[in-house]
Nucleic acid binder design. Structure first.
Lengths: 178, 178
DNA sequence: ATAATTTACTTGGTATACCTAGTAAATGCT
DNA sequence: AGCATTTACTAGGTATACCAAGTAAATTAT
C-alpha cells in the first residue's frame, strides 16, 4: 500500500530525530534500520501481491508452489515445507488448505511414514507457478525500485544477519573482501 | 522465529542459483533482495515481539502508543494515526479496539468534527510506552545483529526506495554525495 | 437551503502469521 | 512385545493486515 497522501517528511528520519532528542542516540540507527525494513517489507509485499492477485495467488502461496516445483516429483512432506520455507507448521497447514481448495495442490499419504502427509503440486499449480514467476519477474523484479548495486549490498548485509540469527550455517553468505 | 534447525545452505542464495539456472538471471538480484527483506522482516518482527510480549504489547500496538506519546496532549484523530503510521484505517480501528480494552488508550469525540474520533493515550499507556521503549532499546536495538555502518547503509538505501514508492516527498532522505 | 459529494469510522469477511493443545503414527527402551 | 517418547499434523483461538460495504457527519455545489 503506497501512501495515498505522501507525508511531507520521511517518518523514519523524524522518528530518529525524536530518538536522539530523547537521549536514545545509541539506539537510533538500529531503530531506523529496523523500521525501514518493516516498512520496505510492507511496500514490497503489496507490490508482489498486487501482481499475483489476478492469478489467485499471494506471496505465501507462491512460495509453497515454487518450492514444490523445484522438487523432483513436485511433492514434499508438510514438515519439510515448513522447514524450507521457515514458517510455522500451522501456517503451512492453512496455506495448503486453501491451495487444495483451489486445486493447486493435493494432499497424499506418505508411502512409508504413516504420520506424514505429502503436499503434491497439481497440473494447475504447475501452470500457475510458471505464469506467476514470469509475471513477477516482468512486473516487479525487472524494475524493483532499487539500483542493482544496492540490491546486492542489501542482500549481502541481510544474509549475514540471517545467518547470525541461525537461519543457516553456510560459512560465507557472500564472499567478503578481507 | 529463528530456525529451530538451521538449514545447511542459505535458502535465498539457493533460490538465486535456481533463478539463474532457469534463465531468469536478469531478475535474480531483485528476487534475492526482496526475499531477504521478507525474511529479515520476519526475524526482526519476532525479536521485537518477544521483548514486548511481557508488557502486553506488540510492534503494531507500540507504534500507535509511541505516535500518541510524541503528540502534544497524547491525542490524535484515527485518520491522522492511519496516515502517520501508513497503515489501513481498519487496522487502526482494530488496534485501538484492543488497546482500549486493555486500558492503554481511550476514544473521545472530536471537539469540532463530529465525524472524527480521537484516540487518547491513558496514563497506563504512557507508562507502558516508556517502559517498552527502554526495554526495546536495551534488548534489541543495543545489539541489533548488524554492524552500525551497515545499519546506516541499509536505512539510506531503503529511504530512497520508500520515497520512490510515494511514502514521502522529502527531497533528500539522506544527503547524497553527488 | 437542499442535494450531492467527500470524509471518517465501523462492521464483517479473507488471508497470513503465530501459539497451545490434541490425536495418531513411528521409534526407542526395557 | 509393550510402554514411553518423539514426530507429524490438525483444530481452535489470537493478532495483524487487507478490502468492501455501510452509516453518519461535514463540505461543496446548485
Amino acid at each position: 500500500m503506497a501512501s495515498p497522501t505522501p507525508l511531507p517528511l520521511d517518518p523514519i528520519a523524524e522518528a530518529k530525530r525524536q530518538w536522539i532528542a530523547h537521549g536514545w542516540a545509541d539506539s537510533a540507527d538500529a531503530m531506523a534500520a529496523y523500521s525501514s525494513v518493516m516498512r520496505a517489507h510492507q511496500l514490497m509485499y503489496s507490490r508482489v501481491d498486487a501482481v499475483l492477485k489476478p492469478l489467485g495467488l499471494s506471496y505465501a502461496r507462491l512460495e509453497l508452489l515454487r518450492l514444490l516445483s523445484f522438487t523432483r516429483g513436485g511433492a514434499l512432506p508438510m514438515a519439510s515445507a515448513s522447514a524450507r520455507l521457515q514458517v510455522h507448521p500451522t501456517s503451512v497447514t492453512s496455506v495448503v488448505d486453501r491451495l487444495e481448495k483451489d486445486g493447486m495442490v493435493r494432499r497424499e499419504a506418505h508411502p512409508t511414514d504413516g504420520r506424514a502427509t505429502l503436499v503434491v503440486l497439481s497440473d494447475l499449480g504447475r501452470v500457475l507457478v510458471e505464469k506467476a514467476t514470469t509475471v513477477l519477474n516482468e512486473e516487479v523484479f525487472a524494475s524493483p525500485g532499487i539500483p542493482a548495486e544496492e540490491l546486492r549490498t542489501m542482500t549481502s548485509i541481510l544474509a549475514r544477519f540471517r545467518r547470525d540469527c541461525g537461519d543457516f550455517t553456510d560459512p560465507a553468505p557472500t564472499p567478503d573482501p578481507l
